[in-house]
Structure formats: structure tokens, C-alpha cells
């Protein structure tokens, strides 16, 4: 039994390590400015704690093995010096990692951005995402979902028809962004909590009804990415997806111009 356990523990250590190193499934290719820092942090964590995992499983196996020739157990009550030493060592390691993580967090959550960030409002509703751009005037029109929302008449968010600022607002079912520009997302929800998860951009933020939450994002690579909802929101949670389309700044400008024009035509 002893030998079987030792082999099992070694298999667990080696097998898990192998699984993570071969990793047939892994992070999607990084596509935002902060993604690199996050991936780096994850790599550090993986090697440090993965290493500890392997070391601890091997130590457990070794202790099991070493008891084989023993006639009698040792009477050891403890060892204060050793205990203090390993407590300090592990605390130092944990807090070192903690501090390095706090640095990444303050970078990701940086609120001192340039004021010229592209404004996009993201609204979650069972089980759809809506993206709104403020249009030419740079101002979002007023919303009152309870009064004006008519999903089948092209006004799912409840844009107040009386508010002029809303005339040129662009509503889109996919999130179109220019590469290389800072984006400020304003997250809202119409019914229950949803969560915007864009794995390729290492981005996740809950959208909470009753709150407007601001978050920053900077896509770096043109391409198509998926948004998956990451907060249980009801039956259709698993299919609450949307597309992120990152394009060149020129292409973005022309897309936005056409959309603004279309929006204006509709309201006129």
C-alpha cells in the first residue's frame, strides 16, 4: 500500500504538471494592453505555486517511503525554531506575490486616463448585450427603460425620444472598437446582474442593475473576439454572447459615421 501511495502521489505531481505544460486548452492570444501584465503574473504564479505543489506532493511521498524501515515512531512534539522559520518563509512568499499582484491591479484599474477615451455604454439584458456610442455630440441621450423600452420597435434601452442628445446615439449589437485607443466602458444592466467577459482582452466586469460602472480597456490587435456572460443571469446565460470587432482607427471612423447617419435618419 505504501508503494502504491508513493507512486500515486508522484503520478499526481508529474501528471498535473504535464497537463499544465502541454495544456491543450489555454488562454486565447492576448489582444489588449493589460493582457501582457496579467499573463506574466499568471506565469509567475504558475511556476511558484506549481513548484510548491510538486514539491509538497513529493515530500509527502518521501515521508511515506522513509517510514518503511522504521521499527518505532519517533516521539517528536514539534520544533519551534523550524515552525517559526517556515511560517516566516511562506508568509514572505505569499506577501511578495500579493504585492506584485496589487501592482497589476492598480495598473488594470487605473482611473487617471486621458479624457479622450472612446465612450461606449454596455447594457446587459436577459440574454442580450447592447452597445451604445454617444454619437457626434459626445453625449449619451437619456434613458428610461420602464417608460420607453420597446425591444421590437428598435428602442430596447428606452431612449427618451424627447432628448436631443440621443438623436445621434448609435446602438449596436456588437462591440466595434478601434485598435490602439483607450476605451471607457460604462456598464449597466436592465434586469439582473450580467458580466462582460472578453477572454482575449483578459477583461471581466459585472454589469449591475441600478449601478453605472466604469471600466477601461485598450484593444491592441484587430480581429474578432467573443464576449461571454460570466454571471448567472437566468436560463439563457450560456448563450448570452456578443462579438467584439476590433478594426483600424480609419475603418472605425467610417463605421461610426455611417451608423450616426443611419441613426439620425431614423429619428428625423
Amino acid at each position: 500500500m505504501r508503494l502504491a501511495l508513493v507512486i500515486a502521489l508522484l503520478l499526481i505531481a508529474v501528471g498535473s504538471l504535464w497537463l499544465f505544460i502541454v495544456h491543450p486548452w489555454w488562454f486565447p492570444a492576448a489582444a489588449s494592453r493589460n493582457a501582457g501584465a496579467l499573463d506574466h503574473e499568471f506565469r509567475i504564479a504558475f511556476w511558484v505555486f506549481g513548484g510548491l505543489f510538486v514539491a509538497a506532493q513529493i515530500a509527502l511521498a518521501a515521508f511515506l517511503l522513509s517510514s518503511r524501515q522504521r521499527k518505532k515512531s519517533d516521539y517528536i512534539l514539534g520544533n519551534w525554531k523550524l515552525e517559526i522559520a517556515w511560517t516566516l518563509a511562506i508568509a514572505a512568499l505569499f506577501f511578495w506575490f500579493n504585492v506584485s499582484g496589487e501592482k497589476v491591479w492598480s495598473r488594470v484599474m487605473d482611473h487617471h486616463r486621458a479624457n479622450d477615451a472612446l465612450q461606449v455604454e454596455v447594457t446587459g439584458a436577459q440574454f442580450q448585450w447592447y452597445f451604445r456610442y454617444p454619437g457626434h455630440d459626445g453625449v449619451f441621450g437619456r434613458l428610461d427603460a420602464q417608460k420607453f423600452a420597446r425591444p421590437d420597435e428598435g428602442n430596447p434601452l428606452g431612449l427618451d425620444p424627447a432628448d436631443l442628445a440621443g438623436r445621434d446615439d448609435v446602438l449596436s449589437s456588437s462591440l466595434v472598437l478601434p485598435a490602439g485607443r483607450d476605451v471607457e466602458l460604462t456598464l449597466r444592466a436592465q434586469d439582473v446582474i450580467h458580466s462582460v467577459f472578453i477572454p482575449a482582452m483578459r477583461f471581466k466586469q459585472d454589469a449591475v442593475p441600478g449601478m453605472t460602472i466604469r471600466a477601461h480597456l485598450q484593444p491592441t490587435q484587430a480581429g474578432n473576439y467573443e464576449i461571454a456572460c460570466a454571471e448567472l443571469c437566468g436560463l439563457g446565460h450560456y448563450r448570452m454572447r456578443a462579438q467584439v470587432r476590433v478594426v483600424s482607427p480609419e475603418e472605425f471612423a467610417s463605421w461610426l459615421a455611417t451608423q450616426e447617419l443611419r441613426a439620425q435618419e431614423k429619428t428625423d
Binding site: L52, L60, N98, G101, P199
Partner: peptide, 30 residues
């Protein structure tokens, strides 16, 4: 009991990942 120790180590060492807000931002609810 030996299995407990092995599993506790395996599950415990992913804790520091999740305790980092920035990593948890990605891993949360996955």
C-alpha cells in the same frame, strides 16, 4: 487522511491566484 493532505495542497495552492484581484478578474466565475 493522506488523500486529504494531497487534495488540500492541490486545491489550496490555487488560492493565491484567486486572491489577486487582477488574476481573479480573469478567473472569477470560470
Amino acid at each position: 487522511s493522506i488523500g486529504f493532505v494531497s487534495l488540500f495542497i492541490a486545491g489550496g495552492l490555487t488560492g493565491p491566484f484567486l486572491a489577486q484581484p487582477s488574476l481573479d478578474m480573469y478567473l472569477h466565475d470560470t
